[in-house]
Computed example of a mutant assay.
Amino acid sequence: MGWSFYHRAPGVETNAAHFTRKLGDRYEIIAHGTVETVFYAAIRSHKTGTVSAYVALTRWKHDRTHNFGYTAMDETCLPAAHKAPKAVLDALTPTTHQDALAWRANCVRYHDQHAFLRQQLKPGMRIRLTHPLRCADNIRRDAFTYGWTGGRKQGRLTDGPRRFPMPNWRELVAALIHPDGSETLTPVGKHQTTHHRSSPAPHSEQR
C-alpha cells in the first residue's frame, strides 16, 4: 500500500477514467466520487460478481516527470478515509468481512453526523468535542460555541472572544450542550459512548 508516483497529464481524464485503466479488466467501476483528495469507487469483480469498495488517496505535486501519485486499498484494509459518497455505499453488495463492515459503518456515521448537525446545530449553541484539543493559546478545550463567519455563513468555533480555525471539526462533535447543561449526543457521540461501554476494562495486577 505504498505510494506510486508517475506523470499524469492534468485535466486530460477524470479520476474514474484514470483508475478504470489502473484496475484493468478484472473490475468494473459501478459508482464513484472524489471527496477532497480521495477517490472512492464501488467496483464489481468480473470473476465473482461482488461489488466492494476501492479507496485511492491521491496527490498532485510540482514535478515534471512524477507529478501525480496514489496509494490504493480496498475496504477490507479498513481505510482511515471514510467519506465515501452515498452512491458508492449503496452500490456495494453484502459482506461478512469485519473490517469492511467497520469501514462501511464509519462512512454511514460520517453522513449521519453531517445530516444531524445540519438539522440541529444553530449559531450560538455550545458543543462538546470527542476529546480536548490543545489550542493556539496552549489551553486544552473540548467545549466551544458555534457561530457564523461574516456573511458567508461559514461555521466557526469560538470561546469567548477567541476564534479557533479547525478543519473537519464537525467530525469531532460529540454533543450539543443546552443552556441547562444537558447534552444531546450526536451520532459520533453515541458511537463513542457505546464503544467505551463495550470496551473491556484493563486488567489490574495481582499482588
Rank of each mutant, 00 (worst) to 15 (best):
N106M: 12
A87R: 14
E75Y: 12
L121S: 01
A102V: 08
Y70N: 12
Y110Q: 04
K122D: 02
A80H: 12
Q120V: 04
A115D: 00
E75H: 15
I127L: 01
H114G: 11
Y110V: 06
Q119H: 08
C107T: 03
Y70E: 10
L133N: 10
D112K: 03
L117T: 00
A80Y: 14
L121A: 06
H82Y: 14
R109E: 10
L101I: 14
T93Y: 08
H111E: 05
M125A: 03
F116P: 02
A87S: 13
V108T: 09
A72Q: 14
W103N: 02
L133T: 12
D74S: 14
T76E: 11
R109V: 06
R128G: 12
L101R: 11
P85E: 06
P123W: 05
K83Y: 14
M73D: 12
R104W: 07
P132K: 04
R118K: 10
N106W: 09
T71P: 07
G124E: 01
L121G: 05
K83V: 15
N106S: 10
V88P: 06
K86C: 11
H111T: 10
V108Y: 04
H82N: 15
A91M: 09
T71F: 10
R128C: 09
A80N: 13
W103A: 06
M73G: 14
L121R: 00
M125G: 00
P94T: 11
Q119S: 03
L133F: 12
P94V: 15
Q98G: 07
D74A: 14
T130G: 15
D90S: 10
A105W: 06
A91G: 07
Q113S: 06
N106V: 01
L89R: 03
A102D: 11
P79W: 03
T95D: 02
H114D: 10
I127W: 00
D99V: 03
G124R: 00
W103Y: 07
Y70S: 06
A100M: 08
T93E: 01
L89I: 06
A80F: 15
L133K: 08
L117D: 03
P79Q: 11
A87D: 09
P123L: 03
G124V: 01
L129P: 08
L129F: 08
T96M: 13
P132S: 02
A72W: 15
H131M: 09
R109Q: 08
M73H: 11
I127F: 00
Q120E: 01
L78E: 11
P85C: 12
